[in-house]
Design a binder for these strands. Structure first.
Lengths: 125, 125
DNA sequence: TTTGATTTACGAAATTATTCGTAGACTAAG
DNA sequence: CTTAGTCTACGAATAATTTCGTAAATCAAA
């Protein structure tokens, strides 16, 4: 499936990924922490997302319950790919080093990455 | 400076980063390889980008010469940041591993990354 | 039952982004 | 000089995205 949420839609997906199933109000209150828009704006966006298949909704009760229909993992792959091609000249390694350089990663995180790299190098077991 | 190119603008920046200084025609022909839009469309976009300060242009000759006014490096930082927050729950390590997993990196690239990590761990010299 | 709050649906305004047509200036070739 | 081609400027059409107002249904409390 083609993943092409707009900016606003991505903000909503983010919340759904984090919180799981949500009502429009749940999402709206979370959004309201950072930006300011009306309730019906959020509602409309989520309705559109349902049409597009970006979210699923359970309409058995009056208050509909939404959840993401695209996995965060797929979205990650998609955006990474796009970004590597768009701004990193196609080099994943380039992106990785930029990412590590600018975000203070904990020692534990760095260790995890190194182990991961070893495993990539040596996929025997 | 705030970096906020649109999709189309990013495509153009990409070309400018790669080729350095370009005329509108240079950019347009490159764009034409992948999409199909009129020459004046590209022209207009680049004019808008000049207004916004995304590109600089030399207008001494009839045929103007454009170059990127935002560095690729800054754009990389900007988009990485955005992406880490938007789809990777704020974890750079998470992004790094996803990136390494999906893009076949050469052994040399992986080595380079490991060295980079060691250096991060041990910033003594 | 009545009132007030909450919900969905929906149309449409407002904003932002993209595309293109046309006009006028310049250039190079004949 | 004339013609054909290329360039910029610019306005405006089109398309995509975001925002919101209003109406109708449902619900819960008094």
């Amino acid at each position: 499936m083609e993943i092409k949420p707009t900016e606003s839609e991505l903000e909503i997906l983010q919340i759904l990924w984090q919180k799981g199933s949500c009502t429009v109000r749940d999402v709206h209150e979370e959004l309201a922490l950072n930006k300011d828009a009306g309730y019906t704006t959020t509602l409309k966006l989520m309705q559109i997302m349902a049409e597009k298949g970006l979210v699923e909704r359970d309409t058995t009760n009056r208050t509909h319950v939404y959840k993401a229909a695209v996995s965060q993992d797929d979205a990650q792959k998609h955006y990474l790919d796009k970004m590597i091609n768009n701004v990193f000249n196609g080099s994943a390694a380039n992106l990785v080093m930029q990412a590590l350089g600018n975000h203070k990663s904990s020692k534990a995180e760095i260790e995890a990455i190194k182990q991961y790299l070893d495993q990539l190098n040596n996929p025997s077991k």
